[in-house]
């Protein structure tokens, strides 16, 4: 009883809030439930959708294969499906602390090779599928994974370089980090998609996906570098002193003593940066790649399904929310250790 009173009517202001909020819930929740669930159409029937009062989730039923796999050949969808499961599996596996050993790297290498084989094909009798046809969920996951996989080591080098005693290296690292962090991601994506072809000899071309991937890697590296730098600064001075006292050379010192500690402290902000990066992959839509958000957007551009943007983006929100919330819960579990 006391809990109820303290939490709902603790003071006169609190009481007012309680009343107002309950009123708000009362007025908005039932209509929303009606729209989203009770009156909604779940069957892939565009005519029924337009006639109905409720939300139209039918487009998901009709377009879900396109949303998940993009323009990948229809009969070969089992390949990106397995690749997706494998990729998510790799991430989940890496989340367990007891698997943080050196052989984790080999597990990843194997996993990624398997995914590459599945997606591209061309061997073991599987038909070759060029990466222009990849899209949807698997593309979002691949962009995130490869982006982080390459950006992370780069970011460690940048963070170490920023603390270096050599002025040229220090200046270059600071310059890079400040430049990338000062401009919007979209400008980097434009740069990659439009400028990169100009830098290469005519006739040589990098495909679009690779260009976008490079831009994302460069972007992530700068932000991760700042997180790692924070971790390096958070280690007590005594650790550096002890390492110096043991007369270990720079790289050995760094890899054996400094980095393990810095990275361990940095796990929560690192995971937060991973989450942000996962969300940022949605921007490749703007340069014409078919990530998850893009396939959802395109699915309602079909003549039969136009006008259901609200449902489409609510659905997109839910999917991203599911992934990101899971990751952020994971990150928070670290803060309790």
């Amino acid at each position: 009883m006391r809990w109820l009173r303290d939490n709902f009517f603790g003071g006169w202001a609190s009481g007012v809030f309680t009343v107002v909020l309950i009123l708000l819930l009362w007025k908005t929740l039932p209509p929303f439930i009606d729209w989203a669930f009770l009156d909604a159409i779940w069957k892939p029937d565009p005519k029924a959708c337009r006639a109905a009062e409720g939300a139209c989730w039918g487009f998901i039923a009709e377009k879900h294969r396109f949303i998940l796999f993009g323009t990948y050949p229809y009969e070969l969808h089992w390949r990106p499906a397995i690749a997706t499961v494998l990729l998510i599996g790799l991430w989940v596996f890496s989340a367990f602390r007891r698997f943080w050993r050196w052989w984790l790297a080999s597990v990843w290498l194997l996993g990624l090779t398997a995914i590459g084989v599945l997606m591209w094909g061309g061997v073991f009798g599987m038909r070759y599928v060029e990466n222009e046809r990849w899209g949807g969920m698997i593309l979002t996951l691949l962009l995130t994974t490869f982006g982080l996989a390459f950006a992370f080591p780069l970011s460690i080098l940048l963070a170490l370089g920023r603390r270096s005693d050599m002025p040229v290296i220090r200046a270059l690292c600071i310059g890079y980090i400040e430049l990338i962090r000062g401009v919007p991601l979209i400008s980097l994506l434009f740069m990659a998609s439009v400028m990169l072809p100009l830098f290469l000899p005519s006739g040589v071309s990098i495909d679009k996906l690779l260009r976008a991937q490079i831009a994302m890697i460069l972007f992530a590296a700068a932000y991760l570098a700042e997180v790692v730098r924070g971790g390096l600064q958070a280690i007590p001075r005594g650790q550096y002193d002890a390492a110096h006292a043991l007369a270990l050379p720079y790289w050995r010192r760094t890899c054996l003593i400094i980095l393990p500690q810095a990275l361990r402290i940095s796990v929560p902000p690192l995971v937060n940066t991973f989450i942000a990066f996962f969300k940022d992959t949605s921007l490749v839509l703007i340069i014409g790649l078919f990530d998850l958000l893009s396939t959802i957007k395109v699915s309602i551009q079909d003549r039969a399904w136009t006008g259901f943007g609200v449902e489409a983006y609510l659905f997109a929100s839910l999917v991203y929310f599911a992934f990101c919330t899971a990751m952020s819960r994971y990150s928070r579990s670290f803060e309790h250790r």
Binding site: D6, N7, F8, G10, G11, S14, F17, T18, L21, I22, I275, K279, D280, S282, L283, L285, L293, K297, G309, V310, Y313, L314, A316, S317, Y320, F321, C324, T325, S328
Partner: peptide, 28 residues
């Protein structure tokens, strides 16, 4: 806040908005 509803509304708001990409929200 000490008010249960206020506290949890705010928490739900933050949790949702931070875990959905901005581009999705803009389209929405």
């Amino acid at each position: 806040s000490r008010n249960f509803l206020l506290r949890n509304f705010a928490a739900a708001y933050v949790e949702f908005m931070r875990n959905v990409p901005l581009l999705v929200q803009l389209f929405f």
